[in-house]
Nucleic acid binder design. Structure first.
Ligand code: MN
Ligand code: MN
Ligand code: ZN
Ligand code: ZN
Lengths: 159, 159
DNA sequence: CTCACAGTTTAGAACGGTTCTAATGCGTTG
DNA sequence: CAACGCATTAGAACCGTTCTAAACTGTGAG
């Protein structure tokens, strides 16, 4: 397959490009690559969501916040697909889940070693780098159990 | 009100007592005292639930587990009342809430400084005394925020 | 390029833990 | 004991999440 042919194929399902055509293409291309690498088919919806999640800095989202955000961007993705995608990305190691609220699930694009501030008033998470924080004196787990991970949540409120 | 009158009044709503009559009376009396001290009316339901929660060692319950347990004991208390009571006890400082699962609320009779193992397979909590465990290197919270508390959850799984 | 298939998306229903409603019950005080 | 106000309750509502099953689409074979 020659270069002209490939370009044609790649562009087939694209909307007309505006001023940030190059940016968009790079973003989509990177999202697509990331998805393929994780063994996930780069569908329109997954590329769109990956674009939002992984473009800039680390992010903490809920299904609903991401659903709102993708709608805001003028793209229609069902809430079920947002849930599916968040779980698939988590399974693929692209996201991790953070449990800080008894009634809402947060997903974190930072899968490295770190902990969190949780702003209880706003339901917002802020990363604490793993190098900064340390937990010591953890007793050995009950017999037959192995530590899966140690989560620290620093709950903060308006002073 | 004289002593005879008071004893009469205290016994009014009691079931017939079995072999552990004294134990039961002490338990109910202690629960009642604890409730009054917390500014809560000692209703039949609250006394019953307090009796289960505070009789022995520290406990970790969910609304449903406590509801099952009180039913097991042959006492009928509605699930709504269990929820109300857990929240009232928490408000009164008799319990604290522990957030380890995105879809279930745990309540802890140990309100002192401590942390938890969470057995993910069984949904079970085990205390880690506060003296044993330490968190260091917590950055100062965002401007205008104050640390409410620092929670450590050591998630363990079958080895 | 087309086709067929397996994987994906979707609307809407179902689910499960929790909260709400408003009617009934009961602990307290006088 | 009466009367008041808080507490309890059944059942409905709520809401985040998961399920269902039908329509759709990315992919690789031909
Ligand atoms: Mn909350
Ligand atoms: Mn869970
Ligand atoms: Zn994070
Ligand atoms: Zn505990």
């Amino acid at each position: 397959m020659g270069p002209a042919r490939q370009a044609n194929h790649t562009d087939r399902n694209k909307r007309p490009m505006g001023k940030d055509a190059t940016e968009s293409r790079d973003l989509a291309a990177m999202a697509t690559a990331r998805l393929r690498h994780a063994g996930l088919r780069p569908t329109r919806q997954r590329v769109e969501l990956a674009g939002l999640l992984f473009q800039d800095c680390d992010r903490h989202v809920t299904a609903e916040s991401l659903h709102d955000e993708v709608a805001q961007a003028g793209v229609k993705v069902s809430l079920a697909t947002v849930y599916n995608t968040l779980h698939q990305f988590t399974g693929a190691g692209l996201l991790r889940q953070v449990i800080v609220d008894a009634s809402r699930s947060y997903f974190d694009t930072n899968t490295g070693d770190h902990q969190h501030f949780f702003l209880e008033d706003e339901g917002m998470l802020i990363d604490i780098p793993g190098e900064h924080i340390a937990v010591s004196g953890v007793p050995s787990p009950p017999a037959g159990m192995a530590v899966d991970r140690v989560d620290v949540v620093v709950r903060v409120k308006r002073a």
